[in-house]
């Protein structure tokens, strides 16, 4: 069994600076991590490896420094790592990203057939949740998003049963391999890398693939292959009316003054609050 895990290196903090002229992210100096949702995907793959001895390949599209994120995955137990990197891939939106990742996965599949593709439900920097579905469509695989649990996996019968978070409940779905599975947060608990794993990761080669390795059309990658374009970046503007500052000598004085002012300005709030508390009381919720 061969599992591919698609990950992304993301900035660690919200303290990201933007270049004032080019409006692009200034990556220098911002600490990076593996997208936390992707780690749930990797852990799920590692658990399958523990049970079945599956082989795990991690892939990412990104700049040269994304190699660091791949090494982290190797230290946790992935067998092979591929960095898909090329100047022409930069500036990609989700459509162009899924095109490159799907092309890389096809190349990998031709070498060692892939049974399952895992990825996180979304990234913490883009928050789009669109690349997983994009990969599935481009590869003609089954798509299983927001998966909280893998109930059954039969590599020989080639089927998979999962629990999927749907609106208002959980769907239990039975599907076929190969499938793209996007994992929900909290679906498992991530292991720590051990010393042998870290040493192995430091020594191991991270393969580098470029546009020629995966045979892509230049018109479909990077900025050129992205139908969506950022037309402007802007900071939020303060509201026209400034916040009313509540003053007082002590915290209690401030609190009293605030509550009086709040209910004086918005008398309906008091009624709404009392009625709501009464309702909660009737439902047996202790106020």
């Amino acid at each position: 069994m061969h599992i591919a895990v698609c990950i992304k290196q993301v900035p660690d903090s919200a303290q990201i600076r933007v270049h004032p002229v080019t409006n692009t992210i200034m990556r220098q100096g911002v600490p990076t991590i593996v997208n936390p949702y992707d780690l749930f995907a990797l852990e799920e793959a590692l658990r399958i490896k523990d049970r079945t001895g599956a082989r795990i390949t991690v892939l990412t599209m990104g700049p040269a420094q994304a190699e660091e994120a791949l090494r982290k995955c190797l230290s946790l137990g992935a067998d092979e790592a591929i960095l898909i990197t090329d100047k022409v891939f930069s500036g990609a939106d989700t459509l162009a990203t899924s095109y490159v990742l799907a092309a890389a996965l096809k190349t990998l599949d031709a070498r060692t057939p892939i049974d399952l593709i895992f990825t996180g439900k979304q990234t913490i920097d883009g928050d789009t949740a669109q690349v997983g579905p994009g990969i599935a469509i481009r590869l003609g695989c089954q798509l299983l998003t927001y998966v909280s649990k893998i109930c059954e996996l039969e590599p020989t019968a080639r089927h998979i049963v999962v629990e999927r978070r749907a609106e208002g409940g959980v769907q239990v779905l039975k599907s076929a391999l190969p499938a793209v599975v996007t994992m929900l947060e909290g679906s498992n608990e991530l292991r720590f890398a051990d010393m042998p794993g870290m040493f192995r990761a430091a020594r191991q080669e991270v393969q580098r693939w470029n546009r020629d390795s995966i045979g892509v059309e230049l018109a479909q990658v990077g900025l050129k292959g992205s139908p969506t374009v950022v037309a402007q970046v802007f900071g939020p503007r303060p509201k026209a009316v400034k916040a009313l500052r509540i003053d007082g000598e002590t915290p209690d004085a401030i609190a009293e003054a605030f509550v009086d002012k709040l209910f004086a300005d918005h008398p309906h709030l008091e009624d709404a609050m009392l009625e709501h508390l009464e309702l909660l009381g009737q439902q047996g919720v202790k106020p």
Partner: peptide, 23 residues
């Protein structure tokens, strides 16, 4: 942008090869 809407939007946009802006 629900679990259903995001699941479907990403797939439809890729099938149509059109642009999709999330959230």
């Amino acid at each position: 942008a629900t679990t259903q809407g995001r699941d479907l939007a990403g797939s439809v946009a890729t099938t149509l090869l059109t642009g999709l802006t999330a959230d």
